Amino acid sequence: MGSANGLVSAQGKQPLLSFGIISDVQYADIPDGRSFIGVPRYYRHSILVLQRAVQKWNNHQKLKFVINFGDIVDGFCPKDQSLNAVKKVVNEFQIFNGPAYHMIGNHCLYNLPRDKLLPLLKIPSVDGHAYYDFSPIPEYRFVVLDGYDISAIGWPQDHPKTMQALKFLREKNPNSDKNSPAGLVGLERRFLLFNGAVGKEQLEWLHGVLEDATKENQKVVVCCHLPLDPGASSEEALLWNYDEVMDVIHRYNCVKVCLAGHDHKGGQSIDSHGVHHRVLEAALECPPGTDSFGYIDVFDDRLSVFGTDRMKSTDMIFTL
């Protein structure tokens, strides 16, 4: 993993805090395969990537916490192995010498329903929701969104949120296979079963958190499994209502960076309001012997990503 020493000495100051990052481990004890567009996937190797990540994070010594950006196990994991597979990966995160924060992704929900998954991931939850915030230092607040709040996966089949999601998909995607974007054009290609939306209550909660962060003069980092900006992601990977979420975010000047997973190739953009968007490259797609994880140094005026192999290192410098 790259060292921040050169950057710190050049800038003349130490980071306010540092934290580890990884996304889309998608572990399963099955032979290697390929994505629906033919990209190789290394299901057994991915947990080795995580193990090396934890070792590196612990050696770093100054990391305050780590964040996993979702999809802890893969949807092809045999269902009779799902519970043990999730526990196995969670146990690897627990070897880290500090807190590990998780968020849910579609592959998590293919394996276990919310009521079983959230306690395993130690996600603070009310009524099955998986959004929360935390403030590791007074200057910064981290907001973790539940991108599958409105979703056809994860909730019971007769749950109102499932019904709402299925109705939405019927209106937006005419294909019998709701995971197919065939015939959908441009940004409409996000209306797929493996994506989801942030619900009304969560949007109101986000308003409140950002209003409070503004009063406290905090900078905010928003984290979501699903990307929130078309400039950083393929259309097929976006949150269904990313525009509504960003409308809330853009009403406040406190949000500086949005981090996401899901779109395995990764990406980066700066939107029209100067908010940085960074999508993290997937651990699942690392050939044996290569890695995709890293850490972020947080400064008053920027976040600096230090990645390994597939995960690109980059600076996100923002206006104060």
Rank of each mutant, 00 (worst) to 15 (best):
K13F: 08
W57K: 04
Y131K: 01
P288L: 12
L120T: 02
C286Y: 01
Y295D: 09
D315G: 12
K116R: 15
F306L: 13
S234G: 13
N106V: 03
F69P: 06
V220M: 05
L192N: 01
F96C: 06
I296W: 02
M163R: 04
F168S: 04
A53M: 09
S180T: 14
P138D: 07
L109S: 00
G6D: 12
I137G: 07
T319C: 08
G6Y: 14
R302Y: 01
L187D: 13
G70Q: 03
R44V: 14
M311I: 09
P136T: 07
Y110I: 04
G105K: 01
G294Q: 03
G307H: 02
E201D: 11
N111V: 03
R44H: 04
S135L: 07
C254S: 15
H264Y: 13
E92N: 12
F36R: 10
Q14M: 10
S23P: 09
I22P: 09
P113T: 07
D146R: 03
G98I: 06
A197V: 04
G261P: 12
G154S: 12
K13H: 10
E281V: 08
K116W: 05
G70E: 01
Q94A: 07
V222S: 00
L226P: 02
V126R: 10
Q218F: 04
D29W: 00
Y27R: 06
G98P: 10
A53W: 02
H225Q: 10
G267P: 15
Q61M: 13
R52D: 12
E244N: 08
V66K: 01
Y101K: 05
N58Y: 05
Y131C: 04
L238C: 05
S23L: 04
D149L: 12
L120A: 02
L303I: 11
A182F: 14
L109F: 02
L187I: 08
V86H: 01
A10M: 13
K172L: 13
E211I: 08
K178Q: 09
L112G: 02
